[in-house]
């Protein structure tokens, strides 16, 4: 039962990941791709947290937390250079 639920959760996350990846490839503008990358890293964070619970490894959570911090910096840097370019 629990295993089936985990598979369902991971399937949902994977579907979101694929959708975001298609947007990343398709664009059509650079900001679209930045938003797609932002969502992808949030999804990766979700994956890590789910795996941390699945394998009972609390240490994995730190990776997710660091990822959340770094993603924001990346997005802000992207936005900064985008506005400078305009």
């Amino acid at each position: 039962m629990i295993n089936t639920l985990f598979i369902l959760i991971l399937a949902l996350l994977t579907a979101g990941f694929i959708a975001a990846f298609i947007r990343l490839v398709r664009g059509p503008y650079l900001p679209d791709r930045v938003v797609a990358l932002d969502l992808i890293s949030i999804l990766v964070m979700g994956f890590i947290v789910v795996y941390a619970v699945r394998f009972n490894q609390a240490a994995y959570l730190d990776v997710a937390i660091i990822l959340a911090l770094i993603t924001f910096l990346g997005t802000v840097a992207f936005a900064y250079y985008l506005e400078r370019r305009a």
């Binding site: 979101g16 959708a19 975001a20 298609i22 947007r23 938003v35 949030i42 979700g46």
Partner: peptide, 13 residues
């Protein structure tokens, strides 16, 4: 949570 993140991906697409 996973459903919401899936919706975010679908919405993005």
């Amino acid at each position: 949570g996973a459903f919401l993140m899936f919706l975010a991906g679908l919405g993005l697409l």
